[in-house]
Design a protein around this nucleic acid. Sequence first.
DNA 1: CCTAACCCTAACGTATGCGTCAGGGTTCTG
DNA 2: CAGAACCCTGACGCATACGTTAGGGTTAGG
Lengths: 191, 191
Amino acid sequence: MSDRNSHRHLAIVAPGSAPDASARPLVASREGAEESDLMLVGDLAKAVGKTVRAIHLYEELGLVRAHERSKGRYRLFAQDALVRVRWIIKLQNLGLSLSDIQALVRGQNDAASAKFAAMRLSEVYVAKLVETQSKLAELKALESELQASLEFLSTCHSACESEVLVHSCPTCERHPEHPTPPELVAGSRVN
Amino acid sequence: MSDRNSHRHLAIVAPGSAPDASARPLVASREGAEESDLMLVGDLAKAVGKTVRAIHLYEELGLVRAHERSKGRYRLFAQDALVRVRWIIKLQNLGLSLSDIQALVRGQNDAASAKFAAMRLSEVYVAKLVETQSKLAELKALESELQASLEFLSTCHSACESEVLVHSCPTCERHPEHPTPPELVAGSRVN
DNA sequence: CCTAACCCTAACGTATGCGTCAGGGTTCTG
DNA sequence: CAGAACCCTGACGCATACGTTAGGGTTAGG
């Protein structure tokens, strides 16, 4: 946590009309259940597990927006920025690049109606669901291969002698359960 | 497939001793069940779904080796190169970088015994198994979120009117099953 | 011998997602 | 008012895994 952020007050400047120049509490203390409305970029970053640089980048790309700026041009983020950045992170984990996300955001912003926006979003999510499911299948297959390989290799640990060299593995008879070694094992011995 | 590779013969040059300069069939036809022993880099690349450049890179990094070279310095790969490259690809899919794989290969080559090599390999595979399982968990969670989001969004499609603007979504009452929208939906509306 | 289709080496280019200065303000505490 | 701890805006740097171009041989068929 920003050690020194705990008792801060910043003056804001309203975005639309009257530039509220009067000092007003914006970033309150974090003690107990007391939660403030606005936060600095460092707070946002820490809350979502990203760096300040990353948040800056997202803003540059139009993926997040500060709710307002302090008099000193500090970015002041509202709570919904947390939701937004977490959303970005999830999309990244789903395999979207930042420019994919940029396109998605634009599509949402440009949508004439909520219904249309929902349709666009659905299209992307359907595609990603399919991709995710095939990734899942692939990873499950790899998981099985790893397990089979580890089982195979455990026999090497228990039944093989220290003098045996790798190059004689092809003629090894110590793996009754595995007539042929798993690919993850076979591949390591080729060269 | 290399369209023109189908009737090739290359003279080889032996690696160790007598440089067998006599012409000898090396890359045979691919028709029917006839399979040859050696292949050119392009054939290997196509067989594993990588580019020639990628194979070259793997060789540079010491991850694969051509069995021999033709008189004209063409790389001639044996069948086990297929096993090897597929192994490399699987390791990549498991999240190892090429230099991780390089280290792994060196570790295997340097291993004094088969048993020791097996132990080293096991260590890597155990770590990757754990990683893979947590990735699986993460992806499953994302899959569920996608499904929940799509279900939520389908209500938008069926129950929302075209005139409704996105900004009024926060007060929408059309989602009885979802008191609060899924994060993948909520995040798309913040800005 | 000619040519299409490959292959070789060397080396620079590319896209992504931040990391990392540099140079200079801002806030809040004491 | 001093100082620590942040924040701001550029802008260049970086690692990965190849892509691409350049310039030049090689193979095998016709």
